[in-house]
């Protein structure tokens, strides 16, 4: 099969994602009235969400140690730099494989339209660049003019930016859907416009990467901005690689599906219409979900 490598990688990603979502059923007793059993302990019953969080924590610790080693050694060795880069790159890949809305936005958007590999690269590039660049910019701001604000700023920033991201994504989805309804004759071959890619990419990546922000803050505080920048760059490359794979797999599988039914005009039209509308409805619902999730925590 022509795209078997992509598919194998993606199957790994998908099984990981599905197992996370369906096996890791969160439990909780909000009313505190479940008496449980004397000696109940969940230390041996970690959900997959928790296991994933534990692995992410280990990745952060590895980056932190590599940075500290560089910070505390009198001579900065190339070897230590390479380790930091590799740890950070691996972390970026793992980080992107975990839960997050970026993959869902890419999926819905690319279901809606016919994109080339170049478009996929552009979309992923914009998402990752926005996600990382904003973190670096905020790190510089917190280190300089907004010094008093940096403590636990990550959590507040995540809430506000995620809310904003949700709103913008939903609005873009609605605008595209309205356009789509107007131009119903061209639905079979919706081309990706650069403006839409930029809008979608920026709105999906607008939440500054908290890890990059923290890395840059530590690096700036210790006067080793280039160490932080190396780590952040490597994380971004790892993120971009995974998101690019997602984009390519979605695009190829969408293409494959449409080619399969190309001989039957009615079915072909039905499926392409379904994807075009379904993708946009997905974008809108995802935007609403994000905004609704973060809205209550922003209230005083």
């Amino acid at each position: 099969m022509k795209h078997s490598k992509f598919i194998l990688l993606y199957v790994f990603l998908v099984s990981f994602g599905i197992s996370l979502c369906y096996c890791a059923v969160p439990s909780g007793q909000p009313n505190g009235i479940d008496r449980g059993v004397k000696g109940d302990s969940l230390s041996s019953e970690k959900t997959l969400f928790r296991k994933f969080a534990d692995y992410q924590k280990k990745g952060r610790v590895a980056i932190s140690r590599a940075m500290r080693k560089l910070r505390k050694s009198s001579n900065v060795s190339v070897y230590a730099f390479v380790w930091l880069f590799l740890f950070s790159f691996g972390y970026g890949i793992f980080h992107a494989l975990g839960p997050g809305h970026g993959k869902a936005i890419i999926t819905f958007y690319l279901l809606h339209c016919k994109a080339s590999i170049r478009d996929a690269v552009k979309l992923v590039g914009i998402i990752v660049f926005t996600h990382t660049a904003l973190a670096v910019i905020f790190a510089f701001l917190f280190y300089t003019i907004l010094r008093g604000m940096k403590d636990m700023a990550g959590i507040t920033m995540q809430n506000y930016f995620s809310f904003a991201s949700g709103i913008v994504v939903a609005i873009i989805g609605i605008v595209l859907l309205l356009k789509e309804i107007k131009n119903k004759d061209v639905r079979n071959s919706i081309a990706v416009s650069d403006t839409n890619i930029y809008l979608m990419g920026i709105s999906a990546g607008i939440v500054p990467c908290p890890i990059s922000l923290a890395i840059m803050l530590i690096a700036l505080s210790t006067g080793m901005w280039y160490v932080g920048f190396t780590a952040v760059l490597a994380i971004s490359l790892g993120l971009a690689l995974v998101l690019f794979l997602v984009a390519v797999c979605i695009e190829k599988s969408r293409d494959g599906l449409l080619k399969l039914v190309a001989s039957n005009n009615r079915i072909s039209r039905f499926i392409s219409n379904g994807l075009a509308y379904g993708g946009l409805i997905g974008v809108i619902l995802l935007g609403i979900f994000l905004a609704a999730f973060y809205f209550p925590v922003m209230l005083p």
Binding site: F52, Q56, P99, G100, K103, F108, Q158
Partner: peptide, 11 residues
């Protein structure tokens, strides 16, 4: 698979 991963993750 892609859509199911639309949750946030801790930092």
């Amino acid at each position: 698979g892609s859509i199911n991963l639309a949750f946030a993750h801790p930092h």
